[in-house]
Simulated scan of single mutants.
Amino acid sequence: MSIAARIRIQRMIKGYSQEYMASRMGISQNAYSKLERGETELTVRRFYEIAEILEIPIDSLLSEN
């Protein structure tokens, strides 16, 4: 499973919409959607930002377990 897919699953577990995530990150919903689909490269800064918003450790997004 890709990191983008794990981000999507964690977002859904939290009950957050793509609009909410995008708003917290200061980007459009469309731009966030592209991150989640893997169409836009996820920068380290964005990766940490997403983990912080989701309130989860970084390694939970990196690990396939």
Rank of each mutant, 00 (worst) to 15 (best):
Y32A: 07
E41A: 12
E52Q: 11
N30D: 12
A51R: 02
Y48T: 15
R45V: 15
Y32D: 02
I58Q: 07
E52S: 15
Y32P: 03
M12C: 14
R45M: 14
I9W: 06
I27V: 01
S23G: 12
R37T: 11
E55L: 09
I53C: 05
L35M: 09
R45Y: 12
S60K: 15
A5N: 10
I3L: 07
R11W: 01
R37Q: 14
Y32N: 06
I50F: 04
R8I: 08
I13C: 06
M1T: 11
S63W: 10
I56K: 11
R24L: 08
G26N: 04
K34R: 04
A51D: 01
R24Y: 03
R46P: 07
V44W: 05
S60Y: 07
M25W: 03
N65P: 09
E36Y: 04
E41T: 09
L42R: 00
I58A: 06
N65D: 06
Y16C: 06
I50H: 02
I56H: 04
M21I: 02
Q29M: 10
T40L: 13
I58L: 13
A51N: 04
E55W: 03
R11P: 00
P57W: 00
E64M: 07
A4Y: 00
M21L: 05
R37K: 05
F47R: 00
Q18E: 13
S33F: 09
Q18R: 07
A22V: 00
I13K: 14
I56V: 07
I13R: 14
S17Q: 02
I50W: 00
Y32S: 07
L35N: 03
A51S: 03
S28P: 01
M12L: 14
I53K: 10
A4G: 09
K14W: 00
R6S: 05
R46I: 15
I13W: 09
G38C: 06
